[in-house]
């Protein structure tokens, strides 16, 4: 029971979710995507979504995933099909929410889980984009994208997930939503 209460979405926690996700979205498009790193772009938003799912469970995770995905679909410079990232992130976060790991510190299991789910999310977005518009996809590039995505997500998870864990669990209040 205590575990469930410890994960419920309260108003201060909602504020934490909104602030962290919004910052991740802006940093994603203005800084991380512009670094020109080889392979994939470091997917901070994906890592944050998975982080909230690990910390807060499938219910909150699904909401965060859908919201963050929809924002990525709609905000500039997105020109892909609206709804693809939202759907993928909602489902990935739902499953990630069922995984029980210690998210308060960067251990191997947690980093592995984040990397694994972010690769699944990237692959799902590639496939969904392929079926909903993109024409000339260079399929040979996919393994390189997924491998680099796993590496970048592992690095990001070390910092982001314990921070999310700390902020979310710290922001307790009686006002339950």
């Amino acid at each position: 029971m205590a575990a469930l209460v410890g994960r419920a979405l309260t108003l201060p926690r909602l504020i934490v979710v909104v602030v962290v996700v919004a910052s991740a979205l802006i940093l994603q498009v203005t800084v991380l995507n512009r670094l020109g790193l080889p392979g994939a772009t470091p997917a901070l938003v994906t890592v944050v979504v998975i982080g909230f799912a690990l910390v807060a469970g499938p219910l909150v995770g699904t909401i965060v995933g859908f919201g963050a995905g929809l924002a990525l679909d709609l905000m500039p410079p997105a020109i892909g099909t609206v709804g693809v990232t939202a759907g993928v992130f909602a489902v990935v976060a739902y499953f990630a929410g069922h995984v029980v790991v210690d998210h308060s510190k960067p251990d191997l299991l947690m980093v592995g889980a984040v990397a694994g789910f972010s690769v699944v999310a990237a692959l799902a977005v590639i496939l969904a984009s392929g079926f909903t518009g993109a024409t000339e996809i260079s399929w040979f590039a996919i393994p390189r994208i997924l491998l680099t995505e796993a590496i970048y997500s592992s690095v990001l998870a070390v910092g982001a997930v314990p921070l999310i864990s700390y902020l979310y669990r710290g922001a307790r209040d009686e006002v339950s939503l």
Partner: peptide
């Protein structure tokens, strides 16, 4: 000011 992700081949 912003770049899209390359994951979706965009």
């Amino acid at each position: 000011v912003a770049y899209g992700s390359t994951q979706n081949f965009g």
